[in-house]
Amino acid sequence: MNESKITLRNVEMRFGDVVALDSTDLEVVEGQTTVLIGPSGCGKSTILRLIIGLLTPTSGVIEFEGKPVSQDNILALRRRMGYVIQDGGLFPHLTAAQNVTLMAKHLQTVQEEELQEKLDDLCELTRFPKDGLTRYAVELSGGQRQRVSLMRALTLDPDVLLLDEPLGALDPMVRASLQTELKEIFNRLGKTVILVTHDMAEAGYIGDSIVLMRAGRIAQQGTLDDLRERPADEFVSEFITAQRSLVQL
């Protein structure tokens, strides 16, 4: 259980003069939920986009199960990772069901009946109403869109789930109930999960390991207790305090 699924070694990402991610090392442990948190522009989404290959690092190496990620294997690796973004990223010209099954149908590896079963299972898992499968993205609520997006990410039964602020656009009530559901789903599936958020409570509730980032660097990595009791520097304690006082309001 303690094997490293994804490893970043001296990974740096620059856009011209702007450093999005300074030379960074990170290990994502298999079967754990790792949460990336930090203020806007700290580089937490950049890490996800580097792992799924939407960005190519300026320098350094990203390893997946010990093998370097490259242009040659990224297509195969993407099919072993599910990616969920804020607002779902559902294709508007397809129904919910078509969004979910798009990739499986494209690969033609799954039989039609098997796919139907899979769809039923996923609806159950994500508590998405089956009669909503024929609807288009615009006809779904924000929470439903995220459920469909999660279903789409899970269709090929990936090893890794990458979620970029999946609950960021939802109102607080929906958000709270989805947090609970997400945690249950992660526990049940036992997949390696990397989740980006800016909400410390969410990070502490869902994450096995929390990576707090600031200005393209990792400020501290550990459990919520580690960060709270043994902050690495002033920024860490300030970040935790700010989030806590926000909750107390």
Partner: peptide
């Protein structure tokens, strides 16, 4: 851009990204 990236992240080849999305 988010939709372009979603298509790529799914693992669709560039030609399939074009025709399917």
């Amino acid at each position: 851009t988010p939709l372009r990236e979603s298509a790529a992240a799914l693992g669709l080849e560039p030609s399939a990204q074009l025709t399917k999305v």
